[in-house]
């Protein structure tokens, strides 16, 4: 993927100018010319474009060290790159968009923490060396962007899932392993799913689209909107304030073929 080329033909320029004159309030812009031009710490060629296309070209946006993105400097396994996003320092966060600058599908997931902390650990498939970004929107509508650079050998997005090397993947589809830790407020789970990107030859996109986690203490549920780059058999760690989970949390979700996921995550016996 490359940035959309700027229009150069004089006729098109004239047309654009005419259009701009007609609607001065909303001048036409190239997709890589955001309203707010940021000084990208990674000097990436793609961030401007993602600021427009993934975040909707917001008026209020800044790179902000309060959004921590913790990832290894080099991807040991292109199919499972771990990342922890922590935006607790911002206070109230409505949503977090996790993405890569370089890759055939930049959007990894959107997290709406609800009553959970604005903190999530996940793993994703990487296709080449790239900045990994987390853009957190606070309730005042402002976006705060953190990032980390991950080097990679690549190929994670364009290979078939390992599931197809086994003959029981369909039996395992939607199986969940999980647990809650009431003392620390942690919720962890793994959902067995191929998470096909649609980029491997002859294998259509097949991935979990939504997962919600509702703790039994009455706090608002957290919602994960997944996209194709999330790893096969995805594992997540979510965080609630201590006390928000009494004994269990309900996990519900659905993939793009309508398969439903449902599990009750409980504390370990004696925990």
């Amino acid at each position: 993927m490359t940035p959309a080329p700027r229009t150069r033909a004089p006729a098109a320029l004239a047309a654009l100018a005419a259009l701009a004159a007609l609607s001065a309030a909303a001048p036409a812009r190239a997709l890589d010319a955001p309203r707010v031009k940021l000084d990208d710490p990674f000097a990436s060629g793609m961030w401007d474009y993602h600021q427009v296309m993934l975040l909707g070209d917001p008026d209020r946006i800044a790179f902000d060290d309060r959004v921590r993105v913790l990832a290894p400097a080099s991807a040991e396994d292109s199919f499972h790159v771990p990342v922890l996003v922590d935006a607790r320092a911002l206070g109230d966060v409505e949503m977090i968009v996790v993405s890569v600058d370089y890759g055939p599908i930049p959007h990894i997931l959107t997290y709406r923490p609800g009553g959970a902390e604005p903190r999530i650990a996940l793993r994703f498939k990487i296709d080449q060396a790239t900045p990994v970004r987390a853009a957190a929107r606070t309730s005042d509508g402002a976006w705060h962007v953190g990032g980390a650079y991950v080097d990679a050998a690549g190929g994670g997005c364009t290979a078939p899932a390992a599931a197809y090397a086994t003959d029981d993947w369909a039996d395992r589809l939607g199986q969940v392993r999980g647990r809650v830790w009431p003392d620390s407020g942690r919720v962890r789970f793994v959902v067995d799913h191929p998470m096909d990107t649609g980029l491997a030859d002859g294998i259509p996109a097949f991935f979990i689209e939504t997962l919600t986690v509702a703790p039994d203490g009455g706090a608002a549920p957290a919602r994960i909107e997944l996209h194709e780059p999330v790893e096969e058999d995805p594992a997540f760690t979510l965080f609630w304030p201590p006390g928000a989970i009494r004994e269990a949390a309900l996990l519900e979700g659905r993939d793009n073929n309508g398969n439903e996921i449902r599990a009750e995550l409980r504390a370990a016996v004696g925990q």
């Binding site: 290894p72 396994d77 969940v176 999980g178 962890r188 793994v190 594992a235 996990l251 996921i261 599990a263």
Partner: peptide
């Protein structure tokens, strides 16, 4: 150590989490 976490941890985390999708 960080590389080993990537190689080996998935098996340990599965072992620490019981099946949760019954009923």
């Amino acid at each position: 150590f960080a590389r080993s976490v990537v190689h080996l941890y998935p098996a340990y985390e599965r072992a620490a989490m019981p099946r949760a999708d019954h009923g």
